[in-house]
Design a protein around this nucleic acid. Structure first.
Length: 480
RNA sequence: GUCCCCGUCGUCUAGGGGUCUAGGACACAGGGUUUUCAUCCCUGCAACAGGGGUUCAAAUCCCCUCGGGGAUGCCA
């Protein structure tokens, strides 16, 4: 069994395509099959080498791996379509010679006009076949005009093409409504996706194709090409697409769509992998947090979802939090460090043990790695500006009482850093009669500048006596 | 327009003729733990798109309608 993932490097890789890659990876893992990475870069306008590099980097970051590809090599290379033109050219010659393809001299403008006409008349958009049997004289006329022909595949008439799809079941297309003879080589000599995908899959000995259902209507064309070339078509499996909340194909206007952005925001590769494979599949037990090995054990091609799935940003975040809290301290510390730097602190200046204590406290509070940026100052800053909601709270009369008492407290305090918070709370409680939320939230505000955050019992021993005192003085001066 | 695919709580899904008063998870609401926000635990809310068949019996099989998506490129 040989599988492939074939992205085109026209931008940061889209999360929907990543899901397809993940499925291929998992199924390959399950059956111990080879996974091939092929770069489909024939769209010269949009493909770049930079995107290819980033695409591979992102996929590797996610934890995917492949047996053959442009970076790893392999016996069926090259693995970039732009480097395989010679192969395609030979096949095109063959098709031209045995009458399965022909030159077409129609210009894009003419074709566009024809399409518009058909659309206006509410007729199906089909290529007229004008150049299918073009007399030699006409050809010469066009050549003399300087027109460069494209190559079209000659569609057999009155045949129905049957796909035995592993997910969709049996799907049948009639050759009549495939849209007419389709272009396989552009007039500039660059061959087109629907054509070369067939050649590459055959030459690379691909046995199974798992891809999005946006490719389902291309499949009959590909099967026809395969037959004309004498290839046995692979086994197909078309899974449902990823949609946005409005149920259209997930796109930028719905939120983040590129794997790279998720990575930057501090999503974990394991969580992403888990969520993506769970989007359109469920385990028998109903459990949802699984390692990739466990998923590979349980999942199967036929069980992949048939219908489209709305991407649930909230659930992904929840799942990420589950992973984040489970990670061992040394691993999660390394992952957090870049975000601590982003927040403007230098982790190298902090003693390793101290840093790990801080991380172990903050790990409990974060769903995303980047969220540490809003908490880290609680430990590393000297004094903190209260945020808006904290400011509102500290302006209240009850809060002012507590600020005053806290200030009194530090003047006479004899507690050490570990008993400080307990002593402060009882002191303030005893003097003001306030308790619960009324008591605790202002103290949290005074010490951290925020209403949300890690346990004060954890925070105060870490920041110590001096810093606590400074922050209380600061708030006293500010509000009283 | 035409072709193809899809249709169970708001979302991801389980279910594939009787075990369905339809199960789980996220979200949401309420409660408990935490002298606080969060975490965690418990409870609740909430769905078979509609209409016809087939059958003793339909979420499950068939047909129609409706709704959604995709394709219809010298993009992939």
């Amino acid at each position: 069994m040989r599988l492939r993932f074939a992205p085109s490097p026209t931008g940061y890789i889209h999360i929907g395509n990543v899901r397809t890659a993940v499925y291929n990876y998992i199924i390959a893992k399950k059956y111990n099959a080879e996974l091939i990475l092929r770069i489909e870069d024939t769209d010269k306008e949009r493909s770049t080498k930079e995107y290819e590099t980033m695409l591979i980097e992102d996929l590797k970051w996610l934890g995917l791996a492949w047996a053959e590809g442009p970076d790893t090599g392999g016996s069926c290379g090259p693995y970039r379509q732009s480097e395989r033109f010679k192969i395609y050219k030979d096949f095109t010659e063959r098709l031209l010679q045995n009458g399965n393809a022909y030159h077409c001299y129609c210009t894009p403008e003419e074709l566009e006009a024809h399409r518009k006409e058909a659309a206006a008349a509410n007729k199906p958009i089909v290529y007229s076949g004008r150049c299918r049997n073009l007399p030699a004289v006409e050809k010469m006329k066009f050549e003399a005009m300087g027109r460069k022909p494209s190559v079209r595949f000659k569609l057999p008439e009155d045949v129905s093409i049957e796909i035995d799809d592993k997910i969709k079941g049996r799907v049948v297309f009639d050759s009549e409504n495939i849209g007419g003879d389709f272009i396989i080589v552009r007039s500039d000599g660059v061959p087109v996706y629907n054509y070369i995908v067939v050649i590459d899959d055959a030459m690379m000995k691909i046995t199974n194709i798992i891809r999005g259902e946006d490719h389902l209507s291309n499949t009959p064309k590909q099967i026809l090409v395969a037959k004309a070339l004498g290839f046995t078509p692979p086994v197909y499996a078309h899974h449902g697409l990823v949609l946005g909340p409005d149920r259209s194909k997930l796109s930028k206007r719905h939120g983040i769509t590129s794997l790279r952005r998720y990575r930057e925001q501090g999503y974990l590769a394991d969580a992403l992998l888990n969520y993506l494979s769970m989007l359109g599949w469920a385990s028998e037990s109903g459990e949802e947090i699984f390692s990739i090995d466990e998923i590979a054990k349980q999942i199967d091609i036929e069980k992949l979802s048939n219908s489209p799935a709305v991407f649930d940003f909230q659930k992904l975040k929840w799942m990420n939090g589950q992973y984040l809290r489970k990670y061992p301290l040394d691993k999660i510390t390394d992952l957090f460090i870049p975000y601590i730097k982003e927040a403007g602190y230098d982790p190298n200046k902090i003693e390793k043990q101290q840093l790990e204590v801080i991380i172990s406290i903050l790990q409990k509070k974060c769903d995303l790695l980047s969220e540490i940026k809003s908490f880290i100052g609680i430990f590393l800053a000297e004094v903190l500006e209260p945020d808006e909601e904290t400011d509102m709270l500290l302006k209240e009369e009850d809060s002012k009482k507590i600020i005053t008492e806290a200030y009194e407290f530090i003047k006479t305090n004899t507690a050490d850093k570990d008993s400080l918070i307990g002593a402060l709370v009882s002191f303030a409680k005893g003097r003001t009669g306030l308790k619960g939320k009324k008591l605790f939230m202002p103290i949290r505000g005074i010490l951290t500048g925020r209403l949300k955050g890690p346990e004060l019992d954890d925070v105060v021993p870490v920041i110590g006596l001096d810093k606590s005192r400074k922050r209380i003085e600061y708030m006293f001066n500010r509000y009283i």
